[in-house]
Amino acid sequence: MPTRVIAGKTVEVDAEGFMVNPNEWNEAIAIELAKEEGIEELTPEHWKVINFCRQSAGATGKAPTLRTITAGTGISTKELFALFPKGPAKKVARIAGLGKPEGCV
């Protein structure tokens, strides 16, 4: 597996840049990955989604789908697209240090 340095920490990533080991993730990594995705500041709403996704993935072993995120956070699909433009499930999974969600192209 390739590695890269994110926020001063060397982590394993897959070919698409998703972290391989969620245990290597930290909030500084999330902030740097968010900036790479064009999100300059992570608001409390962003963190609510990120933390939900990490908890969900910890329980199921995989990144949650958009439907699971909306149901679990109470944040609408429209709001998720505003928080994480152009593919919120995929973007939040990357920022949260999770693998690519199933069903994402």
Rank of each mutant, 00 (worst) to 15 (best):
A63H: 11
P88L: 03
A30N: 04
F81H: 13
P2C: 08
T43C: 08
F18V: 02
G97H: 00
C53F: 04
R67K: 10
L42G: 08
C104F: 13
E40W: 01
E102M: 04
V13R: 04
L83C: 04
S76K: 11
C53K: 05
G97F: 01
R67L: 11
E41R: 09
R54W: 07
A34E: 04
T60F: 08
T3H: 13
V20N: 05
A96G: 08
G97D: 03
G8R: 02
T3R: 15
V92N: 01
A71N: 15
V5T: 12
N26V: 10
D14H: 03
V5S: 10
I31F: 02
G17T: 01
I69H: 00
E45H: 07
A96M: 04
E37S: 11
A15P: 12
E12Q: 07
D14F: 03
P44Q: 03
P22A: 11
L80N: 04
L42H: 01
I69G: 02
A59R: 14
I31P: 01
R4N: 06
C104R: 06
S56C: 07
K86H: 09
I95G: 02
P88N: 08
I69R: 00
L83K: 03
I31C: 07
L98S: 11
S76V: 02
R54V: 12
G58A: 06
K91F: 11
G58Y: 10
P22D: 10
G17P: 08
A30H: 00
G61Y: 03
A57T: 13
G8E: 00
L66T: 12
G61P: 02
K91V: 09
T60K: 15
G58D: 05
V105S: 06
K86L: 06
G72Y: 08
E32I: 05
T73V: 08
C104Y: 14
N23G: 09
G72Q: 13
T60S: 15
A34D: 14
V5G: 01
G8D: 08
E36L: 09
R67E: 13
I39R: 04
G38A: 10
A89R: 05
E16H: 12
E36M: 03
E102N: 14
R4Q: 11
I50L: 05
F52T: 03
G61H: 05
I39S: 11
A28K: 12
C53V: 07
A96T: 01
G103W: 12
A71C: 01
P101D: 08
S56I: 01
G38E: 09
L42W: 00
E24A: 13
A34V: 01
